Simulated scan of single mutants.
Amino acid sequence: MLQIKVEKNGGDYSVIQEAIDAVPYDESAVIEIGVGVYREKIFCEKKDITLVGAGMAETVIDYDDYANEVMPDGSKRGTFRTYTAFFGGKKVTVRDMTIRNSAGDGRVVGQAVAVYADADVCRFENVKMTGCQDTLFCAPLPVAARQQNGFMGPRMMTERRLTKQYYKNCEIVGDVDFIFGGADAVFDDCVITCNDRMFGRSSAGVSAGSATTVSGGSGVDKDQIDVSERIINGYITAACGLKDNLGFVFRNCSITGASGCEKGSVFLGRPWREEARTVFLNCTMDDSIASERFSGWGGITKDEPDTFYGEFGTRIAAGIGTGASNSGSEAGKLASLEYKNPWVRDIDEALALEISRRADELVQGVNGDGVSGDGSL
């Protein structure tokens, strides 16, 4: 197995992309990335590669491409060419670093992907992924785009294939649809935080590249999110997997709004396509999470009967995140789901155990060593 070191000074390489390019496709390799902020746009497509940083706070890969950027031919960059890091190939492992897209508020710049995860098998551990709209894309794409060239990017013309992805002890930050795609993906012990988009308050300093600053306020933003009657800070997920797949499974995660997020302003998800599947098992959430839990696509109460959305064992947060306003006496109580949208599933313990068993099978396959995640209920 190849061992390569990237350091600002003194490594085999000082540029991450050069180290990746040096690895023959069929060779297994571990690339250790030292302390520092690496302003790079990464494209990695190898048979078996591992990238290891010096820690979330120590190793940072940062770029700021964004969807509304006008390209030399006059077209816009679009979502799927904005990634800071693209991971394709057969197997990729990423550990101990931050990957961010620093383009800024989606109401100014549009979508801005930090991580485009498209390897057959993906494993992320102790990785912070941060951005605003569309932070983490868990490939594959849907079969068809809703607008011409809507999928312009590295996989637009390729056959769609299901990927298996595992996220352990990761931190994921964003606001609109910031964990999205058609993968089977398991998130264990992760911290998921929705940005405060500062409605009705000054948002001075919110900018992206050369884009203009966005002002707070209500109305309809570029995503056609109607906030004229209700403030919506974001949607955590936007899945597009098929009904027989596992979809997105979050287990023992912390789900919160950032400081300033209004109560009930964050949805657990909305379906990018009709058969979206997303469940939350034994997660802790604060009061920024909307009582309806999941939104329809194009409207909070829009009927979405073909989705598989639900949660089990959700507990109320106290003092975690910053959207929480529950008293200590309420901490740990099971959340009330009495106001959830009618198409959100009722998941009992038996079904939760079955979903968790399927999630453990995926984790075992990704790890390749028979070690599962913590699927306890």
Results as ranks from 00 to 15, higher is better:
L2A: 05
V6C: 03
E7C: 11
N9Y: 07
G11N: 12
I20G: 05
I20F: 11
P24L: 10
V30P: 02
G36P: 03
G36H: 04
R39Y: 07
E40I: 14
K47V: 01
G53M: 13
A54E: 15
I61Y: 06
A67L: 04
F86Q: 05
G89E: 11
T98N: 10
R100K: 15
G104I: 15
G104R: 15
A112L: 06
Y116C: 06
D118M: 14
V121Y: 15
F124V: 07
E125P: 02
P140T: 10
P140Q: 11
L141R: 07
A144T: 09
R146D: 13
R146A: 12
N149F: 15
G153V: 08
M156I: 00
Q165D: 11
N169A: 11
G182V: 11
V191Y: 00
M198N: 12
M198D: 13
F199K: 14
F199M: 13
A204Q: 00
A208P: 02
G241Y: 04
F248Q: 03
F250N: 04
S259V: 05
G260L: 06
E262F: 04
R270F: 06
R270N: 08
A276P: 12
A276R: 08
S295F: 07
G296Q: 09
G296R: 10
G299I: 13
G313P: 03
T314V: 01
T314R: 14
I316S: 05
A317L: 02
G323D: 01
A324Y: 08
G332Y: 08
K333G: 08
K340Y: 00
W343K: 04
V344D: 02
I347D: 10
I347P: 15
A350T: 04
A350K: 11
L351V: 00
E354Q: 08
R358T: 05
Q364L: 07
